Amino acid sequence: MRKINEETRETIEKKHTFLNSISAYSFSDAFKKYLEYENLSAFTVASEAEISIKTVERYCDGESRPSINTLMRIFLALETSYEICEVLFAKANISVSDNVLQSIVYRTLLEKTEKIEIEDANKIIDEFNKRIIKKADKIKYL
């Protein structure tokens, strides 16, 4: 029991040190540091999140920023901790709370990453976005 608590404390301290270290970074630099922190390659991120490697490289190079959907796919695929997700969302200038329903869907998915398969999470995200688009189209034609 004591060993588990020490390992947990070590993990928490390591995560907080990491989060403090990226506080002044841009999204691209923070994202690269996150990949280093997790010992992940762009290829691994791309294949796990089911996005192109070129897309991941553009994020790392600062050539583009991810959409909320792509960032969610990455976070869910990599089982990224909630705290790191929040920081990287902020770095990407993405506010998860812009839409209350969207915020609930995404935050619930992030909290359940250990219990949900990436394919299922992606289906939930895709279905949610389809419904939002349908609603927007209905409003546009009113």
Score class of each variant (00 low, 15 high):
M1F: 13
R2Q: 14
K3H: 12
K3S: 15
N5W: 11
T8F: 10
E10W: 08
T11D: 12
I12K: 14
I12S: 13
I12P: 05
I12G: 07
E13F: 10
K14G: 09
K15Y: 03
T17Q: 13
S21Y: 07
S21H: 09
I22Q: 00
I22F: 07
I22L: 06
S23L: 08
S23F: 02
S26V: 03
S26A: 10
S28Y: 09
S28K: 08
F31G: 01
L35D: 05
E36R: 01
E38M: 12
A42K: 06
F43I: 13
A46L: 08
A46C: 10
E48D: 11
A49E: 01
E50R: 13
S52R: 08
K54S: 12
K54F: 07
T55V: 12
T55L: 13
T55Y: 09
E57F: 03
R58K: 11
C60V: 13
C60H: 00
D61S: 15
D61H: 13
S64Q: 11
S67P: 03
M72K: 05
F75G: 01
L76M: 06
L76K: 02
T80S: 08
I84A: 00
C85Y: 02
E86G: 03
L88R: 03
F89H: 00
A90L: 14
A90R: 13
K91F: 10
K91W: 09
A92S: 05
A92Q: 01
A92P: 06
N93A: 06
S95I: 06
V96Y: 07
S97H: 14
S97P: 00
D98E: 15
L101H: 08
L101Y: 15
V105S: 05
V105R: 01
V105C: 02
Y106L: 05
Y106E: 00
T108H: 05
T108N: 12
T108K: 06
L109G: 02
T113W: 01
E117K: 10
I118M: 04
E119H: 12
A121R: 03
N122R: 06
I124W: 07
D126S: 11
E127W: 00
E127A: 06
F128M: 02
F128I: 02
N129H: 05
K130F: 02
K135N: 13
D137T: 14
I139R: 15
K140D: 10
Y141I: 11
